[in-house]
Design a protein around this nucleic acid. Sequence first.
DNA 1: TCAAAAGTGTTATAGGTACACCCATGC
DNA 2: GCATGGGTGTACCTATAACACTTTTGA
Lengths: 275, 275
Amino acid sequence: MGVSERFPVSLNAVNIVCFKIDWEERALNVLLLKRSISPQKNKWSLPGGFVQGHETLEEAARRIFVDETGISPAYLSQFRSYSNIKRDNRVINQRSGQKARVVTTAFTAIYTSDEELQLDNESQDIRWFKIPRRYLSRYIPEDFAFDHYEILVDTSNRLRATLEYSGLATRFLPEFFTLGQIQDIYEILWEVELDPANFREKLTNVDGWIREVKKVPENVKSRRGKPPTWYKEESLTNFERMISNPEGEKIREKEVEYQRNIESSTEEIKILKKK
Amino acid sequence: MGVSERFPVSLNAVNIVCFKIDWEERALNVLLLKRSISPQKNKWSLPGGFVQGHETLEEAARRIFVDETGISPAYLSQFRSYSNIKRDNRVINQRSGQKARVVTTAFTAIYTSDEELQLDNESQDIRWFKIPRRYLSRYIPEDFAFDHYEILVDTSNRLRATLEYSGLATRFLPEFFTLGQIQDIYEILWEVELDPANFREKLTNVDGWIREVKKVPENVKSRRGKPPTWYKEESLTNFERMISNPEGEKIREKEVEYQRNIESSTEEIKILKKK
DNA sequence: TCAAAAGTGTTATAGGTACACCCATGC
DNA sequence: GCATGGGTGTACCTATAACACTTTTGA
């Protein structure tokens, strides 16, 4: 059962849900690995692994993600921990047959570049998958390892909901960007069309989020149309007023559903109070 | 270091930040325990303990909270995990001297009733502490165990910020409540005064959150003034438009600061990408 | 009858939505 | 010139904020 009753052994893992924008398809993508080792061999999974004794969850997430994918995320932040007992309960000592359950902490990551992915030796395939808001199952693998499908769905719902009241959108963009590109992020993630005039109005009324930069960044190839004003992120603020999503009701419903799920998971056990 | 390099031992704990409203003082309170065991003996701490192998984090949080306090929370939801290596690194085997680090997952809990607290044998004192927005240190103990002060501050900032776009306020109230009581929650947590007329307007425009109930609940002692309309929570929605906090800027700033902190904690390690 | 709490109404201002229009550039 | 993406202006409507006012009760 554990090292002792007092200190039961459980293993701490992390999993990284890494998003990027596919600019050609105008779609949100997520990075998945096909496992080549047991358990759950041959199934698709989120990048992840065990936390070592000398590192924080955040450090583990970054280390493991870089090791398993060959790329480095521009943003990495804790989402929540998953601890269903059945999610992963494995033998940790072949001789004694001792088993331990695995608690994983899911991280939301954002990747902004376009480098080549590198397979490590625990995976047989690595790919970006399109994750649309609807009919998700048509675009992603059927055979997910552990509870990684659930983690993916929770994380992407939260990501979409978060855009309404935080400046996370700019984390999908390079250092210098235009207002039109911020609008693109919102349109791609929400799968809606927004009025450019009103959207810009909204953006320029958010304090402390983005700052105009005078010089045009290098490596910008000129194209048709008026040259845009360039901006850079100042700080990742939360908004005073929401940038409201025309399809927001559906996304907020999913967040409500999610809340109900994580709450009900505690209702199963009834404990009598001491008296 | 661990069971093996592959499966490093780390201990999973939970801590519960339990809030309630002190209606007499019109203040937000948090429940703290004074430890009577090592480590960190005689320091004040959040209720918490180790997760057993057969239970989820949520189940552990509820079990431990009930055991340690004698009361049962009306709301319990994961906040985030804390994994600083120095936060708690303890000997788990006296013979071998084997040490293990403790990762804790903090939970936000809300208590709505007023039953008597029960001390268990690992604590020498249990008390509700007032946690105002400013000059917090004047109201809470100086000697906090582990990183519990940090957890308390993060959690209460998040709680205050969350009210702007979610219906969490009703979780501080009993099954049946009035619009005035919802306003009280906002006023107490934000330490502001809100216009009753405009506040009611806002509330009645939120879909699916609260529902009018025709009958007057029992045990309501009549008092001066027009008898109020009674409501009950329908579902814990996220709002389409924020209920904006006149002091919101300061609270949002704290959330931004917090975001910066948890992000920068990953920046310390630089890892070269494989090529 | 008056104080207290709940609840309604009114007005000025700010914000949101829809849409027409202007600007600078490459082809 | 004209298509293209960037950007401004305006009219209309809704939301918010401030505050006066009415309703219903207990003492």
